[in-house]
C-alpha cells in the first residue's frame, strides 16, 4: 500500500467518524485531543480536556453546557484568540495553532460573535457593521450599502446612524451579528448571540440565521444555553460537561433543513430536547 492510499483510507475513516447524515464536503474543522488549562496565582483550572470533534464544511454545530464548562474557551481557541494547552486544531487540514502562535492565513473569512457585543462606541451602527469591510479595504459606498442591508436583515433599519449607547442590549448584540456577517464568513463562530433577546426576536433571528447559514453554506459553531434553540438550528448538538470540560455526547438532529418553527411541536423534537435537558440536569447534580 502506498503512503497516499493509506492517507486516503484514514481520511474516509475520519469522515465516517463525524457521523453526520448527508454530510457535504470535507472536514472544515478538526479538533484532536484539544485541552486548555488556565494557571493563575489563585487557581489552576482545567477548562477543557481531550476534545475530539470533526465539523464538516457547511455543517451547523450547536454547543450546549452549563455555565463555566468551557464553551467560550473552546470558541476562542477556534477563533485564533487563545492557544490550546494540548492537542491540535485543523482548519481545512491546516494547523491553526503553531505552539502559541496563530496562523492568521488559516482564519481568514472568519466571523465571530462574542458573548458581549463589543461594539465601538465611537462608530455609528452602520460604521460598526462595516468595520470588517473597512479593514479589508472596501470602498466607502459599497461597504455602507452592505451595512444598510445588514441592518435591515437584523431588524435595525432606521438605526444605522445611531450610536451603540442609544441601543438596548439586544439591539447591540444584533449589530454585532451583522458585523460578523458583513464579510460573508465561511466560518461563523457564535457565543450565545441571542442571549439578550426577547423570545419573539430570538425566534426571528433563529430563522434568519438558518436562512443565512444555508444560503452562504457557512460552517457554524453556535454556543447557546437554550436547548430548544440548539436542537432547532443544529445539524448536531454537542453537550459539554463541566470540570473539566469534556464532550459528554453528540446528538445528530435529522430534521431536514430548512426547518420551520413548527418542527418544535413534533414529538420527536420534544423527545430530543427532553433528553438533553435531563443530561444537563445530571451535570447540575455532579
Amino acid at each position: 500500500m502506498s503512503p497516499d492510499s493509506a492517507e486516503a483510507v484514514s481520511a474516509t475513516a475520519g469522515a465516517r467518524q463525524s457521523t453526520r447524515t448527508g454530510a457535504a464536503g470535507a472536514a472544515k474543522l478538526e479538533l484532536i485531543g484539544v485541552g486548555k488549562e488556565f494557571r493563575t496565582k489563585r487557581a489552576h483550572t482545567v477548562a477543557l480536556s481531550d476534545i475530539n470533534l470533526t465539523i464538516d464544511d457547511g455543517e451547523f454545530v450547536s454547543i450546549i453546557g452549563r455555565s463555566g464548562c468551557g464553551k467560550t474557551t473552546l470558541l476562542r481557541m477556534l477563533a485564533g484568540l487563545l492557544s490550546p494547552t494540548t492537542g491540535r486544531i485543523l482548519v481545512e487540514g491546516r494547523s491553526l495553532w503553531n505552539g502559541t502562535k496563530v496562523d492568521t492565513s488559516v482564519v481568514s473569512q472568519l466571523g465571530v460573535v462574542f458573548q458581549e457585543a463589543n461594539l465601538f462606541p465611537w462608530y455609528s451602527v452602520a460604521e460598526n457593521i462595516a468595520l470588517p469591510l473597512q479593514l479589508r479595504g472596501d470602498d466607502k459606498a459599497s461597504r455602507m450599502k452592505r451595512a444598510y442591508e445588514l441592518a435591515e436583515l437584523v431588524g435595525l433599519a432606521g438605526f444605522e446612524r445611531s450610536y451603540p449607547r442609544e441601543l438596548s442590549g439586544g439591539m447591540r448584540q444584533r449589530v454585532a451579528i451583522a458585523r460578523a456577517l458583513s464579510i460573508n464568513p465561511k466560518l461563523l463562530l457564535m457565543d450565545e448571540p441571542f442571549g439578550a433577546l426577547d423570545a419573539l426576536t430570538r425566534e426571528r433571528m433563529n430563522l434568519e440565521l438558518q436562512r443565512i447559514s444555508l444560503a452562504t453554506k457557512a460552517t457554524v459553531v453556535f454556543i447557546t444555553h437554550d436547548i430548544n434553540e440548539a436542537v432547532f438550528l443544529g445539524d448536531r448538538v454537542v453537550h459539554l460537561t463541566p470540570r473539566p470540560g469534556r464532550i459528554h455526547q453528540i446528538r445528530t438532529i435529522d430534521f431536514p433543513k430548512p426547518r420551520s418553527i413548527d418542527v418544535q411541536t413534533e414529538p420527536e423534537f420534544g423527545a430530543i430536547v427532553r433528553d438533553l435537558r435531563h443530561a444537563l440536569d445530571e451535570d447540575e447534580k455532579r
Binding site: 476562542r76 477563533a79 485564533g80 484568540l81 492568521t104 482564519v107 481568514s108 472568519l110 465571530v112 462574542f114 463589543n118 465601538f120 468595520l131 470588517p132 479593514l135
Partner: peptide, 8 residues
C-alpha cells in the same frame, strides 16, 4: 479581541 479576530 474583535480587532484580532478580524486580523487587523
Amino acid at each position: 479581541e474583535v480587532m484580532r479576530s478580524l486580523n487587523a
